[in-house]
Design a protein around this nucleic acid. Structure first.
Lengths: 111, 111
DNA sequence: CGGAATCCTCTTCGATACTG
DNA sequence: CAGTATCGAAGAGGATTCCG
């Protein structure tokens, strides 16, 4: 986090910006995921980016990581309690995206 | 716009993503701006990026551009009627950013 | 004033290989 | 299974110059 922001949306862009973070949060808003499940849910993300984004979301306090040690190690990811505050925002972004897609399709037709 | 999306937030990221677009929309949600005013309102953006982002927001149908021809050319930018639909989203992102800043400051204290 | 056009840098992201 | 570590490509963004 920087020291000074001219506008609060800059903070949001800094924390949730980039290609993948909102997508990951959207998945985690549906249910908890093991790492490998999350990869299957987002097939086009690379392992590296998934790890990297999850780490950064964890650092931001939005995502909680739980290691299940056994013969095979599984790691569960879920929204932290605080992270659940992002759900309305993610839902809003999701709705806006769908509406915008519809708008685009309509304006294409009439051109 | 692509053809296929796995998740609606991808659309939103594609249209509003990047460092500047939400910031510009936030300014335009406050009032209409002449180009030069907008530059002063967002001092850290370069002229190139401002022009580029405004063009893309125009193409997306969110921003309207009005040229005032006179001795000196002035161009007014404002949200299009459709673009006003982004205001609630921008406000939500703004509120989330402020809340998150507060959260970060608090968790820093206790560490 | 409001751009367009280059050129260049830096970050983001992807591909691949390796590890406990 | 859930990661690290490197390397390289691509694209976003910045600095500068020129234009009507």
């Amino acid at each position: 986090m920087r020291e000074k922001y001219n506008c609060p949306v800059e903070i949001t862009v800094e924390v949730l910006g980039g290609k993948w973070k909102t997508r990951i949060l959207w998945e985690l808003s549906q249910k908890n995921y093991y790492f490998s499940e999350l990869r299957r849910a987002i097939p086009d993300i690379t392992k590296k980016m998934l790890v990297q984004c999850l780490r950064e979301l964890e650092e931001s306090g939005l995502v909680a990581r739980k290691e299940e040690s056994g013969k095979i190690i599984r790691v569960e990811y879920k929204l932290s309690q605080y992270g659940e505050n992002t759900i309305p925002l993610i839902n809003y972004m999701s709705k806006w995206g769908m509406d915008h897609l519809y708008f685009q399709r309509e304006t294409e037709k009439s051109s």
